[in-house]
Design a protein around this nucleic acid. Sequence first.
DNA 1: GTCTCTGCAAAGCATTTGCAACTGC
DNA 2: GCAGTTGCAAATGCTTTGCAGAGAC
Lengths: 147, 147
Amino acid sequence: MTRQRRVILEELRKENIHPTADLLYEMVRKRMPKISLGTVYRNLEILTALGEIQTLEISGSQKRYDGIPQKHYHIRCVHCGRMDDAPIAPLSTLEDELYGATVYTIMGHRLEFMGLCPECSRDEEARRVAEQLLGIPTEPAKPTDQN
Amino acid sequence: MTRQRRVILEELRKENIHPTADLLYEMVRKRMPKISLGTVYRNLEILTALGEIQTLEISGSQKRYDGIPQKHYHIRCVHCGRMDDAPIAPLSTLEDELYGATVYTIMGHRLEFMGLCPECSRDEEARRVAEQLLGIPTEPAKPTDQN
DNA sequence: GTCTCTGCAAAGCATTTGCAACTGC
DNA sequence: GCAGTTGCAAATGCTTTGCAGAGAC
């Protein structure tokens, strides 16, 4: 456990944001100006393997990192990329539904909600971009009874 | 609708594999040897925007493309990257659970199962790699009653 | 005829890696 | 003292883009 590794872990856990590697790099750099981005990446990989943190790999271009190792779901702003924890308990029985129905050995699942964060919700342009992105018709469809 | 676009769509829908751009490029090249990879990427993007296909984004690895535009879930082999449709119906009520519990405007969700495909399941080394990757203890833990 | 699309090659960008110097234990 | 780690820079691999010519309608 080097000083770099400790500081990276501390900064990641300081607030419950889910930073990208380069944002975390900037955060760490305020305390250790000479640290390199490569070191940040290497340690994030090691910390993930140690089970200290989580690497969030669902959709989007950049990976994000989560200082909380326990299983939980996330919600992501499709416009600005902001991520937060989703206030919903893990669906522990979900994987059972696939037993016998698939040829795979199931080992886990990931659930991610997509939407707009409060800031982007206010932005009319962001709404349009988001609806386009998710294939949502401009006229919001009412949920049907059987769907 | 150019010939290239049509062939790309046809090849993507031919079998229900979920190819990466370069695999699809190889498939298309058998019919159109002079097509370029850039054209494949451009058309996959356009077809996604048109709602004809889906782009499956898994950050950290390659994107995969799905010729079926309807919502459905996937299952991914964490060792070889193979993807198949998950035989489970969309959870239409999932997003309701977040109403009022989050500051986000929810617009959708994505659920992905992870595991090993039949081929990789047989590979002892693949199992070890996968367990490491997903933070699963080597000694398979029995499911507890309340968890 | 015009506007879009193509092939090609180069650029972009997040992430990984080789290497020699350094450090924690 | 030595295995493991760092900073740096270059490499990698997927994806996107600029451009001039070609094709769809």
